[in-house]
Design a protein around this nucleic acid. Structure first.
Length: 982
RNA sequence: GCUCGAGUGGCGGAAUUGGUAGACGCGCUGGAUUCAAAAUCCAGUGUUUUAGGACGUGCGGGUUCGAUUCCCGCCUCGAGUACCA
């Protein structure tokens, strides 16, 4: 055994760790706890590429480091295994999504296992397992059985609300609930039928059914949450999304808007991520104002952030979807308004977004009354006002708001100026800081701050408005018209939803013969034969038995992907009594929350917001001891792929096979810049190739010069040369292709950095890297690429540097005869101890700052130094193995074993840094003249400033650089620099 | 448009408090070894030069004895968000 046989070593230790459960966490320990978690992976069919494990490697290094530091570490892994792709695949192939999910997980696991992660697999979680989703359903029922009390600022049991209703009605109830709930007294409540009571309670529940405008994606056949839509199309698949009114389950996340915002101050997350949650929640401060409508008993409520500009209102604008539109529109305007509404409804969300410039709108014929001046204000509708934000109506102040200004200009509406000395001839004046209000009755000569205070007081006194905080955040739609998700534990009785008793959970996903909606347009669960709830038998029975007396239909929608991922981090804490509780009190109190969470930034407004919401809710109801799930969070940057392109001559003739030209040759021939001209040259130069197929007399039409086509990076070597044979066999029509190569017969491709993706053929598989270089090399190289949080391109060629390092490390421990293992028990040299201790210091600092790339460099430096020092001392080589073990656990474990240890290296304490080995007696001072370093001078460190100065001034080179001048000033920073000015 | 982040050799990147810019690695050049190749080892490698130097961290200013680092004004790229009243 002399060489570094990484494949054998890695397989051996992976097996050993699994068999010995080396990384199993205990729920009881003398040690302090530390919980390291990776964002929940979705097991996609494509498997892992080298970009995926980046975060896992970082978290694994940290977890291993914490173990060395004496922590009881929980580092689990599992799968977010419900979701659209498996279902889409099921629709296409008829295979049960459970089966494909199972296969994907197996493949994922196999790939993960090869990388040597220190996961505690005994706590694995899969969201699609009934034993898991039983508790997702259970939490849903807890939400259903809760309401939000604004006075106590927390969620409470719905039973407590019933008690309040029975004793005093709902007049004093200050809850987050549906709009426009009618007041009732205690006696009225008691007289209501049970159905009526349920109907009212539903308006208060934290998860509720309501007719809402939803994002409907016809191609996916389901609704989508706001965060699942990117640029007006679905995040998955890129299909169009339209707005549609549907009865859906929603989550009253808006109740938590302020707490979700405030909580951000207490968690250690990247600022951009906090910013995007802050923006998503979108808090704005202002006031509500109510406008009466002339000759009508309707009122228009608006929200404004600039109540101080109320005397600048010259018109009102309602969203086309606003409820009042049909009521207040006059007979003369009816046709115009209806045409407009029809036209805007046809425009898709995407069109509306793309076309912000075009101003459209129409007058309703109605007039509102100014609450202070009594003036008549025309009421318009326009699609720049969004139905979903605020009240769906604005008071338009064209002098102060650019959109109102543009609208006014376009329709020739008056633009009264209420700002002192402001020029509004070209654009609105929106500078709050320098505002002085004028032409505004009692607000004249006040600044923004004063006017705002005064007007809000006036509004409140008159009873036509009040100070108000508005949030952009909407309640989250929770229903999906899909099969592969958690069934709602709900059945319908008299049209009202009822939860099935919690002891009957889980409500298992039924079998269906097809994963498509029914002919009636119901979700796939509508195809299930046995999907009715029998209240007497407490079980799921055949739909045929539905009698609406004891047997009722079950909910047909399923829960969205984020249901299972909003609480999974608690499930890992519990390893034993998973049947009895979602997680036991003991486990929850021991592990509390996730100390370190690593994952991509794409979950900023989805998973990371919903989880925080659920945790706050669960905390309110006493289910968990913490209010925030993730104390510290790190976003790992994406690893980008290096796509390879082959250049193909472009011409319109099917008789000629594809002709590819080597990139280097192409650049040379085309003289890089004059591409257009070079096309003619090709025609001439390579005409022989065409002649072969067309005969000499026929000229081919060249349309566009050349085309760059993606080729699989697997066919390209480190020198950018294409393996022509493999490429030819790739596609049927390439088999007969012609290649214009370099003089030496090679064919060069061009490269470009792009996102790593199957469709770009630039995916690098970690399995290949592992078999060629080993997992330790892959782990280290991924870290070595650059800072964890930054995006960086993958370049397989560079991996040899890290691999070479591990070989050198191996050699350092194999300095015996015939490269046999050898360490001596002699004490180490001063230099070696210095190398060791500076590396301990650096590694520790780097890991704590998540600067893993720089510690890999410091290992390289250390090993280079120790080799040149011929170090073979146990005193240095033992601690060195521990330092490296979080990064390269297999080789370290092997070396540790060879050093004579029977316990895993992961149990070894982290080496202690000792300053005394780094103490220097002298320093090589850089001597600068006017800030420019000219030479260095070695001087003892204990010299005083004066002694340093005289030593420097006495040096012969000093005189040389001074060229006879007398220095004006000599700056001396002991231990750092000397700078001579003059 | 707004918010945030980033610009350093041929490439990935380092410089943790304002103190020797380019650590470490890739690539490249030359050499050793080899029948040859791979592997390994040694030396060199920011640009420029009249070989003294000069220039150099996106651009233009400023503060300082000294700026990749701090301040002001721009430019470019990336990410998120988008009629939010």
């Amino acid at each position: 055994m002399s060489k570094y046989h990484f494949n054998e070593i890695e397989a051996k230790w992976q097996k050993h760790w699994a068999e010995n459960q080396t990384f199993k966490a205990e729920n009881q320990s003398e040690k302090p706890k530390y919980y390291v978690l990776d964002m929940f992976p979705y097991p996609s069919g494509a498997g892992l590429h080298v970009g995926h494990p980046l975060g896992y490697i970082a978290s694994d290094i940290y977890a291993r480091y914490k173990r060395h530091q004496g922590f009881n570490v929980l580092h689990p892994q599992g799968y977010d295994s419900f979701g659209l792709p498996a279902e889409q695949y099921a629709i296409q192939t008829g295979q049960h999504p459970a089966k494909t999910t199972e296969e994907n997980i197996a493949r994922y696991r196999e790939q993960l296992d090869k990388l040597g992660f220190s996961f505690d697999w005994s706590r694995e979680v899969r969201t699609s397992n009934p034993e898991y989703y039983k508790w997702t359903q259970w939490i849903f029922i807890q939400l259903f059985e809760s309401w939000y009390d604004k006075d106590q600022n927390k969620a409470r049991a719905i039973e407590e609300l019933r008690v309040v209703f029975s004793s005093e009605g709902n007049i004093h109830v200050n809850a987050v609930c549906d709009e426009g709930i009618e007041h009732f007294t205690a006696s009225e409540w008691l007289d209501f039928s049970e159905t009526k009571k349920q109907e009212i309670l539903l308006k208060y529940r934290l998860t509720y059914l309501a007719e809402t405008e939803v994002n409907w994606c016809p191609q996916l056949g389901t609704v989508l949450a706001n965060d699942e839509i990117v640029n007006g199309v679905s995040e998955r698949g890129g299909y169009p999304v339209v707005r549609k009114k549907m009865k859906q389950w929603s989550m009253r996340i808006t109740a938590y808007a302020q707490r979700l915002l405030d909580g951000l101050d207490n968690i250690d997350w990247p600022q951009p991520l906090k910013d995007s949650q802050t923006n998503w929640i979108g808090r704005s401060k202002g006031s509500s104002v109510t406008f009466n409508i002339k000759d009508h008993d309707a009122k228009i409520d608006v929200f404004t952030t600039r109540p101080d500009t109320i005397f600048g209102v010259s018109f009102m604008t309602l969203a086309p979807e606003h409820d009042l539109v049909s009521k207040i529109t006059t007979a003369e305007q009816k046709e115009a308004v209806e045409n407009y509404i029809e036209a805007t409804a046809k425009r898709s969300e995407r069109e509306r977004m793309a076309d912000v410039k075009t101003i459209t709108g129409v007058f309703t014929g109605a007039y509102a009354e100014h609450p202070f001046s009594g003036e008549a204000i025309p009421v318009w509708i326009g699609d720049y006002v969004l139905a979903g934000y605020g009240t769906g109506a604005v008071m338009s102040v064209p002098c102060g708001d650019q959109r109102d200004y543009d609208f006014a200009k376009h329709f020739n509406l008056p633009i009264p100026n209420i700002f002192k000395d402001a020029d509004i001839s070209e654009e609105a004046y929106s500078d709050k800081e320098n505002t002085i209000i004028t032409n505004s009755d009692f607000l004249n000569d006040l600044n923004y701050q004063q006017a705002t205070e005064k007007i809000i007081a006036a509004l409140e006194e008159k009873g036509v408005g009040e100070g108000k905080i508005n949030y952009r955040l909407r309640d989250a739609v929770f229903s999906r018209q899909r099969y592969w998700g958690e069934p709602f534990p709900i059945y319908y009785k008299d049209g009202m939803p009822h939860p099935i008793p919690t002891e009957c959970l889980p409500l298992r996903l039924p079998e269906v013969e097809k994963y498509l909606p029914t002919e009636e347009g119901e979700p796939p669960l509508g195809r299930a034969d046995d999907w009715a709830w029998d209240e007497k038998q407490l079980s799921v029975v055949s739909c045929q038995l539905i009698d609406y007396e004891t047997v009722f239909p079950l909910e047909l929608n399923t829960m969205p992907g984020w249901a299972g991922s909003s609480w999974y981090f608690f499930r890992y804490m519990e390893s034993e009594k998973r049947d009895e509780v979602f997680a036991s009190k003991k486990a929850l109190n021991y592990w509390k929350n996730v100390d370190l969470y690593i994952g991509g930034s794409e979950h900023a407004t989805g998973h990371l917001l919903y989880s925080r919401f659920w945790v706050k809710f669960m905390h309110d109801r006493g289910l968990v001891p913490v209010e925030e799930p993730f104390k510290k969070l790190i976003n790992q940057g994406m690893i980008l792929g290096e796509s390879a392109f082959v250049r193909k001559l472009n011409y319109n003739n099917s008789e000629v096979p594809p002709i590819f030209i080597s990139n280097k040759k192409f650049l040379k021939e085309s003289k890089a810049k004059e591409e257009e001209k070079s096309i003619v040259d090709y025609e001439f130069k390579f005409s022989k190739l065409f002649d072969k197929y067309l005969g000499e007399n026929r000229k081919i039409q060249v349309t566009m010069g050349t085309l760059d086509l993606h080729t699989d990076v697997a066919f390209v070597n480190n020198s950018n040369e294409l393996n022509i044979e493999e490429f030819k066999n790739w596609r049927e029509d390439y088999k007969i292709a012609e290649f214009i190569t370099e003089e030496d017969g090679s064919f060069k491709v061009s490269r470009e950095v792009e996102k790593m993706s199957k469709s770009k053929y630039n995916v690098v598989n970690p399995d290949d890297i592992c078999s060629q270089y080993g997992a330790d090399t892959l782990r280290m190289y991924e870290m070595f690429l650059g800072p964890l949080e930054q995006a960086k391109p993958w370049n397989t060629a560079g991996i040899t540097g890290v691999h070479g390092f591990l070989k050198k490390l191996w050699k350092l421990y194999h300095s015996g005869e015939n490269e046999s293992f050898y360490v001596s028990d002699d004490s180490a040299s001063k230099d070696s101890l210095k190398t060791l201790h500076k590396t301990i210091k650096k590694t520790q600092e780097d890991i704590e700052h998540f600067s893993f790339n720089t510690s890999v460099s410091s290992f390289m430096i250390a090993v280079n130094e120790l080799i040149s020092q011929n170090c073979n001392s146990r005193e240095v080589l033992e601690p060195l193995a521990i330092l490296i073990s979080p990064y390269a656990p297999h080789i370290s474990e092997e070396l540790w074993n060879k050093l004579g240890h029977s316990e895993s290296i992961s149990t070894a304490p982290f080496p202690k840094f000792e300053q005394k080995y780094l103490v220097e007696s002298s320093k090589e001072y850089p001597i600068s003249f006017n800030g420019k370093m000219r030479f260095t001078l070695e001087l003892p460190l204990d010299l005083s400033k004066e002694e340093i100065e005289s030593a420097v001034m006495a040096h012969e080179k000093t005189a040389q650089y001074l060229e006879g001048r007398t220095p004006k000033k000599v700056i001396i920073v002991p231990g750092k620099i000397v700078n001579i000015v003059g």
